[in-house]
Amino acid sequence: MIVAGIDVGSLTAKCVLFEEKVIAYSIAKVTPDLENTAKAVYSDAVKKAGVSAEYIVATGYGRNKVSFANLKVTEITCHAFGAKSIFPSCRTVIDIGGQDSKVIAVENGVKNFVMNDKCAAGTGRFLEVMASALNVDVSKLGELDEKADKPVNISSTCTVFAESEVVSYIAQGEKVENIVAGLHNAIASRIAAMAKRIDLKPDVVLTGGVAKNKGVKRALEEILQIKILVPEEPQIVGAIGAAIVGKNYASRGRKSERF
């Protein structure tokens, strides 16, 4: 059975067509019209795959706006299933998305989870704001991090205050690479504080768009003192999980509510 997982996040929408493995996927920027965003990203994935889905599961912040989905599941459950399917040894998922971040303990589904509070600190948005203050592309942050020799210390966790710290570092003539590494350390310490609330067990898998940034992985590994696995395409892990949840659910005749 071909299942579609659609993850409508705060910044991007992702769609995966899945049978035994990923057949095709598509990623698009979110527009204010979430339903149409979901439709567009789904049609794009269908076009790439050349087949359409028999069952559709929506997840992410916009899940309830996807009226054509058969099932709606939170991204927490989906990231757990998605990460586990890619790395069967996964016990913990750290998902850093556009507007929130979460640490999930995995064990036959979700065992426990923590999410960031109502604040952009420790999310993809934090890095976007900082990249624009530094006038660099957000996708280049990872490379810049590698060239840092003495990361600066960013003491504010608040995005607004941290941005003004960045501005003052620029004014002091600090190297951009060192500021970037400092920012990655700040985001990692924020995530580490959350991770401490649950039992962090290896293997730890990093998912979400921010996982594409090698600097964040580097900073997290340093602060948590643990090796972190990153899927080839970390941004679609939630969508993969949604498809898997849908597959399990549909194959049980949709009778059991357990995923």
Partner: peptide, 20 residues
């Protein structure tokens, strides 16, 4: 002003999914 509906819905729904 302190209540964020989308965040609370996600936390509670995920919690219920976890308990099922």
């Amino acid at each position: 002003r302190v209540f964020s509906e989308a965040q609370i819905v996600t936390r509670l729904e995920a919690f219920l999914e976890m308990l099922k």
